[in-house]
Design a protein around this nucleic acid. Structure first.
Length: 438
DNA sequence: TCTGGGGTCCTAGGACCC
DNA sequence: TCTGGGGTCCTAGGACCC
């Protein structure tokens, strides 16, 4: 019996590739996609990477230079990306069993075939996604998830691989040199902090990390890093995430945003918190959960003068678990009252729902039932927004819609900026792509 | 002038119980 | 007034991911 394999399929420059699907004029051009508020670069096409544009770069700091060199920028269009992601995942799920959707643009699959056959199926799968959805993906195949990640990066960096890499082939061909050329910071699970600590110990490459003693690594760091070491040695120990939340249900729900212009008084802060609470609450109901704690936080800019950064957070415990937008919005505002400095210049805030439990399983003594959304207010708001367009109806400021096209646009000055938004071609009739035949 | 958003897992430490 | 050890549960905070 051969060792079971993991397959990792990951789209190339996913957001930028999505922008190209319905706008062929972007082909071969450097394309960048910006975060909310058109803040910083979150995705780059290969051409943009070649120009040296780094992920996370603030857009304002490179805008002039970028425009001079022909870079095309787009605001992030999550509705389009989510729709293309669903198509891509659906196509791939037909090729191999055990799909585990890890993020919007990547999934793990658990093939039951041997290595050669898995390579063949992966190649066919890649072709089907490219032709059927228009998105290029790269595929890494290895005995563990961490090595599948490594193989996937390999496929992306080496065009000769045809977009599909098998770890054992790489190992046979290059031996230790393959891991020796990968900086430890590129390994899945090794972030900025950990990189620093590892480097201080002389662990600089993936090969250095692979050769560590797992037990002493656990003592010095944590069980998470120990798993990474084992996985680099071909021992699978990162399980699927299906167990805890039956695949779909979140264990906490966060809605937070940066403001396009700062908020400097608590009345506006309450508006924002109420809007975010309602968004979070909609997701809570969609997964039919109740929450028992509502947290809220707000913060000033971390880029201001030295020592000027301020952040505040608080939590309200609900008397009874609830999914009622009135109760939750009120609790969110209450969580910050008396805690936040009312005169600071806030640039972001958020609402976090905690203590989530299944609404259908919730039972208690008579007289102590959950404070459900008894007037069905949440459901009615959801329906109205579905029928007439989002942000048409809501509690307090959440129902006031401005002139902009964005769903987020409530007309308030603090809502986000998306000035370079492409069409939502796959989800809105009035924004469909138009083809011309000359 | 202008720097994202949504999530998970792990650990340490405190509260509480017997 | 003194006072042990072991367990569980919860929370806050850190670190990571894309």
């Amino acid at each position: 019996m051969t060792q079971p394999l993991m397959v990792l399929a990951d789209a190339n420059s996913f957001f930028a590739s999505c922008e190209r699907v319905f706008d062929p004029s972007l082909a071969r051009k450097p394309v960048v996609v910006l975060s909310n508020n058109d803040g910083c670069v979150v995705a780059r096409s290969a051409e943009a990477k070649r120009l040296g544009i780094k992920e996370g770069t603030p857009w304002f700091s490179i805008r002039e230079e970028a425009q001079r060199t022909g870079v095309v920028a787009r605001s992030s269009n999550y509705e389009l990306y989510a729709s293309l992601s669903a198509r891509m995942m659906s196509v791939m799920s037909r090729f191999m069993p055990g799909q585990e959707i890890y993020s919007i643009d990547e999934c793990f699959l658990s093939p039951s075939t041997d290595a050669r056959q898995t390579v063949r199926v992966s190649t066919a799968m890649r072709k089907a996604v490219l032709e059927g959805v228009g998105i290029p993906v790269s595929i890494g195949i290895a005995p563990t998830k961490t090595l599948a990640k490594v193989a996937n990066h390999w496929a992306k960096r080496h065009p000769a691989s045809g977009g599909v890499s098998l770890w054992t082939d790489i190992e046979q061909q290059y031996g230790d040199a393959a891991l020796a050329e990968i900086p430890v910071s590129d390994i899945w699970g090794v972030g900025r902090r950990l990189t620093k600590k590892l480097q201080a110990m002389g662990i600089v490459t993936a090969l250095d990390l692979q050769r560590q003693d797992p037990v002493s690594i656990r003592h010095r760091f944590s069980i998470t890093v120990e798993r990474t070491v084992l996985e680099l040695n071909g021992i699978p120990c990162i399980a699927g995430d299906a167990s805890a939340n039956d695949g779909k249900r979140k264990s906490e729900i966060l809605c937070s945003r940066m403001f396009s212009t700062p908020i400097t008084d608590m009345a506006h802060m309450d508006q924002a918190l109420s809007v975010y609470a309602q968004k979070a609450c909609r997701r809570l109901r969609r997964q039919s959960s109740l929450c028992s704690h509502v947290s809220a936080f707000c913060a000033t800019s971390p880029f201001g003068p030295e020592n000027s950064y301020q952040s505040f957070h608080g939590t309200t415990t609900l008397h009874d678990p609830s999914d009622d937008p009135l109760i939750i919005a009120k609790a969110a505002c209450q969580a910050l009252h008396g805690r936040a400095d009312p005169h600071a210049r806030y640039i972001r805030a958020g609402v976090l729902l905690l203590g989530l439990q299944d609404a259908n399983d919730f039972t208690t003594l008579h007289g102590f039932e959950a404070k459900r959304d008894t007037h069905n207010l949440g459901a009615i708001i959801d329906q109205a927004n579905q029928k007439f367009g989002s942000s048409r109806v809501g509690i307090g400021y959440g129902g006031i819609r401005g002139k902009g096209r964005g769903d987020e646009d409530t007309g308030a000055t603090w809502t986000m900026r998306r000035e370079m938004l492409s069409g939502r071609c796959t989800t809105r009739w009035d924004e469909m792509a138009v083809a011309h035949a000359d």
